Simulated scan of single mutants.
Amino acid sequence: MPVSTWTPVGRWTGTVTHDGEVDEYTVAFAPDGSLSVTTRKSTGTGSWTVTGDDLLEFSLREDFNLDVTQISPNGHRAAYIQIDITARHDGDALTGEGKAVVHGPDDVEIYATGARTEARRVS
């Protein structure tokens, strides 16, 4: 079976849609399989892997900035989100879906939701 030569390495900007909200982000995919993400209210790190000719899976933990009081839809204070996405690339575009699990300051899961993302390569 041929191995995919496609790689997401570089910087991408995009949006993630969840619970009727749309948040913008920038993500940098590094050659070693790691990634870093920034949003207006959080930063995070994680890992990625190409799983097929046009498929990518990535997982990350996104911590809310200390100056942000993030309240989950069920009324609890959120500290971070664990996000797992499967995405398909088409040229310099990524579209994907996955799950976002919100955790409180005590690491307890307080909320989970679906997430959809769209991104474009910028470098």
Rank of each mutant, 00 (worst) to 15 (best):
A115H: 10
T117K: 09
A78K: 08
R61M: 07
E57I: 01
I85S: 01
L35Y: 02
L35N: 06
Y80C: 11
Y25S: 01
R116S: 03
T45H: 11
I85W: 01
I81G: 02
V68S: 10
S59L: 05
A87M: 03
K41R: 14
E118T: 13
G104I: 03
T86G: 03
Q82P: 13
S59A: 10
R61N: 03
L56R: 04
L35E: 08
D53N: 14
I110T: 02
P73D: 02
H103L: 08
A112C: 06
T49A: 13
D19S: 04
T51V: 00
D84C: 11
P105N: 09
E62F: 09
D54T: 00
D19P: 08
A112L: 03
D67H: 09
N65R: 14
A79R: 06
F29R: 11
T45S: 11
S36K: 15
D90G: 00
F64C: 13
V22M: 14
N65I: 12
A93W: 10
F58D: 02
F58W: 01
S72I: 01
D106W: 07
K41H: 13
D92H: 12
L56C: 12
T38D: 06
I85N: 01
E97W: 12
F29P: 00
T51Q: 02
V108H: 12
T45Y: 12
D92M: 08
A28R: 13
S59N: 13
R116E: 02
G91R: 07
T39P: 11
V108T: 15
G75D: 00
P31T: 12
T51F: 01
T117F: 11
R88K: 13
S42T: 04
A87H: 04
T38G: 01
T45V: 07
A112S: 01
D19Y: 06
G96T: 00
V22Y: 10
G96P: 00
E97T: 15
R61C: 04
E57H: 07
G114N: 10
E57R: 06
D63W: 15
E118C: 10
G20S: 06
E21V: 10
G33W: 05
I83H: 11
A115P: 07
H18I: 13
A93E: 13
T39K: 13
Y80P: 02
V102W: 15
I83G: 00
N74D: 15
A112N: 02
P73Y: 07
D54M: 01
G75L: 00
G98H: 02
L94Q: 03
P105C: 11
E24C: 12
W48P: 00
G52F: 02
L94H: 13
D106S: 05
T39D: 11
D54R: 03
Q70H: 14
D63C: 11
G20D: 04
E97A: 15
R61V: 00
D23S: 14
Q70S: 09
T117R: 05
T45N: 05
V102G: 07
P73R: 03
I83A: 06
R88Q: 08
V101D: 05
S59C: 08
H89R: 00
D32T: 10
N65S: 09
D90K: 01
E57K: 03
S34D: 06
D84E: 14
T49D: 13
F58A: 04
S42Q: 06
T43C: 07
G44A: 05
Q70L: 11
S59H: 13
N65T: 14
